[in-house]
Design a protein around this nucleic acid. Sequence first.
DNA 1: GCCGAGAATGAATCCATCC
DNA 2: AGGATGGATTCATTCTCGG
Lengths: 245, 245
Amino acid sequence: MTAPYFTGNGVTIYHGDMLDILPDVTGFDALITDPPYSSGGAFRGDRTKLTVDKYVQGGTATYRPEFAGDTRDQRSFAAWCLLWLNIARQNANPGAVVASFTDWRQLPTLTDAVQMAGWVWRGVAIWHKGFGRAQPGRFSSAAEYVVYGATPDTQPNGDYPPGLFHHPIVRDKVHIAEKPLAVMEWVLRYVPQGGTVLDPFMGSGTTLHAARNLGLTAIGIESDERYCEAAARRLDQQVLPLWEA
Amino acid sequence: MTAPYFTGNGVTIYHGDMLDILPDVTGFDALITDPPYSSGGAFRGDRTKLTVDKYVQGGTATYRPEFAGDTRDQRSFAAWCLLWLNIARQNANPGAVVASFTDWRQLPTLTDAVQMAGWVWRGVAIWHKGFGRAQPGRFSSAAEYVVYGATPDTQPNGDYPPGLFHHPIVRDKVHIAEKPLAVMEWVLRYVPQGGTVLDPFMGSGTTLHAARNLGLTAIGIESDERYCEAAARRLDQQVLPLWEA
DNA sequence: GCCGAGAATGAATCCATCC
DNA sequence: AGGATGGATTCATTCTCGG
């Protein structure tokens, strides 16, 4: 098995391709993640743009590192999600749960993949970002979605997280798609208490950070070494900074 | 063609089976509706009762058998939505739009049906109802969804409706699934100005009521004569009451 | 410290233009 | 049924900064 890139403070980070490492990762109680949406535009030309081009346009925005794996069409996105969702379900502890972010465009594809992978789809939670980019003649898109599910034998954990969570986006992002810490803490309320969380698309490590705040153990996998380094630096600290304003 | 049950004040109501009447209805610019979700309550008893009540017609065709099973439930819901979504698209004016309510469980099925019927799916809007019934170990479900789309040649109408609308549910309902007037007015901001709205699942007539408030013409179809009567009484008035607290 | 005005920004989208 | 690229456009909310 691949050696961890970082261990400490209840956190383990693996650097490498998610599909290579995932088969060897076991003993977790929750798969909580934020995969590349492979969204961004109705046309293949739009979708296959670099993430820095399709998600940060307008000239004035600050440059952020490119991230990989965001160019799949819907069929391959479905097949690819099925792959990791299924491996994770097989390797998870009994009673495990799953929760994954998505946008409106891939929501139906993701609910299909979750169910095909053997999880029981239990619902959709909403992260409301407060505002979206307004466009004439359509509703402004100001939300992202969390598709969540469980194994058939999952026991309720006793918490009652709200189905809609309102929180503004992160301003000084390290990763383009970085989630606010508070948003991840909200989603992690779905995890069995004291359990271990796996995030195979770690990015800047917000899931692991939030897990640590809540007293959960966490495992992250990330293919881009720059993000591994940033996350390790972030999580190596004894007392975690807020990381966000 | 069937004679209208009621006409007046820019409103037309047809009483009868939606699939019988719909092929003869033309000249509308928007299909805005709230069909039976077929996922309704948590219990199969609720579901069965609902479909029996709503879909039994004086004749041969019945839908109840398809709505009993678990798997065929969703498939027949998809096929049935495809049916009316397709007829409506063919009969609509050029540039027409569509918006239909659904709950989380049928959201992927409905987005499929909308697209299979030839509409371009353009997004999901959210009606947040406040607080749903909390259940341990899962996110509380307090939202319903509006799947919206358009024909390929639709021109933007210049309005910028918010993608999330917060409004409490109706207290003194006439119809079980009655939507607040304000919620319908929010959705109708998606309709081309001054256009004609079709609602093939009229119920108590909230869509027509809201359309009239916004200066739109409206057509409703309803299979249950009790609702036709209630809606006609409601819409016959020169000045409409608020209808809700 | 509070308030208001102005600037910045967004897990976009559309479309003209060029290859 | 062409496909890729880049610039213009949009407004609600947040941020910044000065009074």
